[in-house]
């Protein structure tokens, strides 16, 4: 009996190994994981022989998995840093970069906050801790409570770099976009950053206890991440590319999936989830 079972198990293991040739493993950014699952499902319906497995863990986790050969594609919400590039060189692993969409970072505040827009300079002062009171911004003598993501988040790293500051020590670090939104809804003096894609998909629009602020880059009019036209013209300041790193050995396996993301069906999924398409001239 046991021997029979053992044979069964062995053959199962062997079968699953055999299947590996048509399996595509995607790992990385938690921001992108929901989107990637939707894309993978749609892709699977078109190409049923492909088994696409998607998992999160964070941008860095995906990049390390790519390095170790445990993933074919790494999703990342930030570019590879110098240390990671050095590791790829040292171990002789080649990979290609594909920017498949753009995501806007939305700055959100409580619905009763009189302020509607902030300049980039104000954001820098607030998040670096120089400006800790709402008074000079909206007249309320209240401490500014900041909400953000922990430092294993690509969003955290990206925003810090984009603003050219080091986040002040008083930023509360929450486990994900949902917690930030819920905290802001309760906190009259809260200010936080979340992925615009997340807000659009789950709340449709503002007016449910929190609002999305418009952001003004130097010498430009303030614009909202919900304003599709402005975002597409690259007028919104906090716009970040979402990357996919593809292990070169898996390039052939990954190619049809990449083509699918670029196809109209793939683009439709991206847009429906609050992400933006990459314009050729915006490829950074």
């Amino acid at each position: 009996m046991i021997r029979k079972l053992f044979c069964w198990l062995c053959s199962l293991v062997m079968l699953s190994c055999k299947n590996n040739t048509s399996q595509l493993i995607i790992k990385g950014s938690d921001t992108e994981v929901n989107l990637m699952v939707l894309l993978a499902e749609a892709y699977w319906q078109q190409h049923p022989k492909w088994q696409v497995s998607v998992s999160g863990g964070g941008s860095g986790v995906g990049i390390v998995a790519l390095l170790n050969g445990r993933a074919d594609i790494a999703n990342s919400s930030r570019p590879m840093n110098a240390k990671e590039q050095a590791l790829f060189q040292r171990y002789g692993v080649a990979c290609d970069t594909f920017i498949f969409a753009e995501d806007a970072i939305a700055i959100i505040a409580h619905a009763t906050n009189p302020i509607d827009s902030l300049t980039v300079e104000q954001l820098q002062a607030i998040f670096s801790g120089q400006l800790r009171n709402w008074q000079s911004l909206n007249g309320n003598h209240l401490k500014i409570n900041l909400y953000g993501r922990p430092n294993n988040s690509g969003t955290h790293a990206w925003l810090q770099k984009k603003l050219g500051i080091s986040f002040c020590k008083h930023v509360l670090e929450m486990n994900g976009n949902a917690q930030i939104v819920e905290a802001i809804k309760l906190d009259q003096s809260g200010l936080g950053y979340v992925s615009a894609g997340y807000v659009v998909k789950n709340y449709q629009q503002t007016g449910e206890g929190f609002k999305i602020l418009r952001i003004a880059a130097k010498g430009q009019a303030a614009c909202s991440p919900l304003d599709k036209e402005a975002v597409e013209q690259q007028k919104y300041y906090l716009l970040r590319p979402l990357y996919q790193y593809i292990r070169r050995e898996s390039a052939q396996k990954a190619q049809p999936f990449i083509e699918f993301i670029k196809s109209p069906a793939g683009e439709e999924i991206l847009l429906a989830n609050g992400y933006f398409l990459v314009r050729n001239d915006s490829a950074k």
Binding site: G57, G58, S59, G60, V61, V64, K83, E84, P150, N151, N152, E173
Partner: peptide, 9 residues
């Protein structure tokens, strides 16, 4: 718990 997930080994 926060940092172990993504620290470079």
């Amino acid at each position: 718990a926060i940092e172990m997930g993504e620290v470079p080994f």
